[in-house]
Amino acid sequence: MHAVEISFLTKSFRTVLREPGLKGSLRAVFSPRYLNVEAVKDISLNLEEGEILAFIGPNGAGKSTTIKILTGILFPSGGEAKVLGLTPWKDRQKLAYHIGSVFGQKPQLWYHLPPIDTFNLFSKIYELDINAYRKSLNFLIDAFDIGSLITTPVRKLSLGQRMKCEIAASLLHKPRIIFLDEPTIGLDVVAKQQIRDTIRHLHDSEGTTVFLTSHDAGDIESLCKRVIIINHGQVLYDNRVSALKRRYLTKKAISVRFAEKIEGQFFMEGVEVLKMSEYGVKLQFQTDATPVEKVIEQLMQAHSVVDITVQDPPMEEIIRSIYEKPPEERKDESASEEAE
C-alpha cells in the first residue's frame, strides 16, 4: 500500500477582488468581482511507506494547500487523495491518530503553560497508553534535548526552544506519517540539526514516512532521497535528489591559491573570474563546455599552485534556477527526465 496516493488533485479558492481605496471597497460590497485562484491544479504523486520526500516550491506554489488537503483540513475541488488508505477529508478523525503535522509558523502549545501540560493533554487526546506515552516522551526529550524546557511556561521559551517542543508535541503519538511544513524556519544551526537528526532517527527506527516542505536546502540535502518541485500548483520535477544534482549541477567553482604573486589580469577561455586577489583566484565555469580537468591542467601549467578546491554550487542555486525557468522549458525537461 502507498502511504500517500494523490491523483489529479485540484483546489481552487474564490476570493473577492478588492480594488484599492474606499470606492473599491464599496464596489466589492455591491457588485463583487471574483477571482478564482487555482492553488493546486492536477497534482498526482505516490509516496511509498517509509519514504522521505522533500516537497518544495516557491512561496504560493501550493505546498501548504496540498498538505492541508492531505491532513484533512481542506476539501479539494477535484481529484482523489488517499493517506494510509483513508480519504483525509472524509475520515479526518480516524486518520488523525496515525498522522502528525508540524506547521512551522503556527502555535499548538498552550502559551501560558509549560509544554509538559500540552504533552499530557495530547496523550489523553490521542488515547495513548501510559507506558507507551512515557517511552515516547523520554525518547523525544533526549532527542531534542528539552529536558529542562518542558517545565518552563511556553511564553518564556526562545523560538528555537519552542519549535523543538512544538515538534515533539506532534510526534508523541508515534505517527506513521509526519507532515512537516517548514519545520526549521528561523532556527539556528544546532536546533536545525537536532530536528533533522530526530526526523532521521524516527525514519530509521520506526519506518516513519516523512512529507517535508522547506525552503532550507540543507533540510532537503541531509534528509531526503526524493524531491518533488512544484510551482503554480503543478509538479515540475519528481525524482531523486541525486538526479537533481547530476542534471542541474552543470556549474563548478574552483578556488586556487598560488605560490607567487600573479601579475596583471587573470584570463582563461570559457571561465568566469568571480574574485581575485594577489595570491588567489576564484573561478566559475560550465562543466559541459569546459571540463574540470582542462581548467586544472591549465592552472597547473601557468602557475605554481599551493592549494586548489573544487566546489558544487549550493543546492539553493539549483532550486532557484528551476523556479526561474519559464514554464514551457520546464515541461520539456520533466518529460525528458521521465524518458531517462
Partner: peptide, 13 residues
Amino acid sequence: DGSLAYTIMRPYN
C-alpha cells in the same frame, strides 16, 4: 492565525 490547522485535525470532535 492559522492555528485552526492544528485544532481541527486532532482525533476529537
